[in-house]
């Protein structure tokens, strides 16, 4: 159900800082809105994003209801060795969505 869009280079030079963009489909329901009958719409948000490079956590984010729906992040990683980049989003219930990308470093 979750749609993910990733923009990650597949090759980089050693020491190069690469830009990564990550977009995921999620309503990020804040828990502050009310429905047509005045009832509070329950909070339903992604609370954590992690990017691991060669199994090491290089960038992470904690999300609260102040993050917009369909969260988009742009961040950076310094290329060191060829290997995988893992991206994981986890919601407040512990449900996780992941994507992987291979990076060749020369």
């Amino acid at each position: 159900m979750a749609s993910i869009r990733l923009a990650v280079p597949d090759a980089a030079n050693v020491g190069e800082v690469i830009e990564i963009k990550a977009l995921i489909r999620h309503p990020m329901e804040s828990g502050h809105r009310r429905g047509a009958r005045g009832e509070v719409i329950e909070r339903d948000i992604i609370t954590r994003f992690e990017c691991r490079y060669l199994d090491e956590l290089v960038f992470a984010a904690d999300f609260h209801p102040g993050i917009a729906a369909n969260p988009l992040l742009t961040f950076y990683v310094r290329a060191s060795n060829s290997g995988t980049l893992d991206f994981t989003w986890t919601d407040q219930h512990g449900t996780a969505w992941s994507e992987t990308s291979a990076l060749t470093v020369t």
Binding site: H32, E56, L57, F59, A61, H64, P65, T74
Partner: peptide, 25 residues
């Protein structure tokens, strides 16, 4: 905002650059 903390971003030397773009309410 209803809640003062919007987000926290965590960096490491492996980030290479301490910059992040996001979209907020």
């Amino acid at each position: 905002n209803p809640l003062p903390l919007i987000s926290q971003f965590y960096f490491s030397p492996g980030s290479g650059r301490a910059k992040v773009d996001a979209r907020i309410r």
